[in-house]
Amino acid sequence: MLAYTVYSEAGGVGKTTLAANLAKAEARAGRDVLVIDLDTQEASLSHLLDVADDRGNDQADSLLRHMIDRPRGPFEDLIKTSEGIDIVPAHNILEYASKHLRRREEEAADFGESFNPNKQLLRVLREAGVQDMYDTLIIDPPATADIKLHNAIHATRHLVIPFEPSGKGYESVQGLDQLVSGLENNLGIEVGVLAVVPNRYKGMNDQDRFLEELQRDGWDIPITLRERSSLLEGCWAEQCTAFTYVDEHRERERDHELETLEKFDQLAEYIRAPTEVEA
């Protein structure tokens, strides 16, 4: 099963939009796709794909409940479907994930049991047989490097990194290199980067210079995504992927938007081409 986390330390770089459209591209390729939303922001993947109805429902089951061994139903009941993509939506209780997972760790220690708070998402997915049901797993964590990110990385072991090609964006990618090394050391696992994805590219000389520097540093940049404010803002307004927005909400096809859709397909194919990574 191909598994990866779409992550960037920098906010506002299109992390969630990229995750949703990569999931749609995978579904278009005929693959069974599961996306897990670990971001507690209101403007999250769950909102974008219109599956956030139970976000604030205290009586609803949630992924965190399964991670602390207090589920209210089977894992399969957490899954919603939108545009041919299966999604485990975010719930507001995820904001307290660290507190509840650490508390569960302390309880386990009191009884001489082992409980690694960073591996509980991996455990839940394995017990649910996700690796046998799906071809692709994509996780969208928050931008902060907290316990939710640690669980995402334990479950996938691989990252896809969106960034804005600017001085600030370049520094964030360099900082992410240090973060990956730190995660490997702290979590005791190897973390691979499948692709770095420049977003909001405008063809400026400074941007080209940053991309060249990143490639010289060994980063894998298979595509660049140009500034597409109208398209992507339309996606959020209509709560859908770019593929559905162009198909259902544009009266006429626009070449530059079709080019963007093609790049999402190309990126998805590039990521899955070398090898399928076991979660």
Rank of each mutant, 00 (worst) to 15 (best):
I93L: 01
D110N: 08
V196A: 09
L214R: 04
I93C: 01
K99T: 14
V124E: 03
Q207V: 14
L94Q: 04
Q131W: 10
Q174S: 06
F210L: 03
T144K: 02
L159S: 03
G112V: 08
E127G: 02
G188R: 02
L211V: 15
K119A: 13
V180L: 06
F111L: 08
G169V: 11
V196E: 05
R228M: 05
G167R: 12
E212F: 05
N118D: 14
A90L: 04
E83K: 03
S181Q: 12
D135Q: 07
N116E: 08
E105V: 11
D110R: 10
E83I: 11
N186E: 14
R103D: 13
N199R: 10
Q178D: 13
T136N: 08
P89Q: 01
F111G: 01
G203W: 07
P198L: 06
R103W: 07
H91P: 11
D217T: 03
N185R: 09
R157W: 04
A195M: 08
L122I: 00
G182R: 07
I87T: 09
L194P: 04
E105D: 11
A143S: 12
F115I: 05
V191K: 00
P142A: 01
K99Y: 10
S229G: 06
L225I: 13
L122G: 00
N186C: 01
P222M: 07
I147G: 03
L125W: 08
E95D: 08
I189E: 02
D206R: 08
Q215K: 15
H100S: 10
L176V: 13
P142C: 05
V193I: 15
Y170T: 06
D146R: 04
I87S: 01
G169N: 03
K202L: 13
D177T: 15
Q131L: 03
R123G: 00
E113C: 00
I189T: 07
A143V: 15
E213W: 11
Q120H: 06
D86I: 07
G218R: 09
N151T: 12
F210Y: 15
P222W: 08
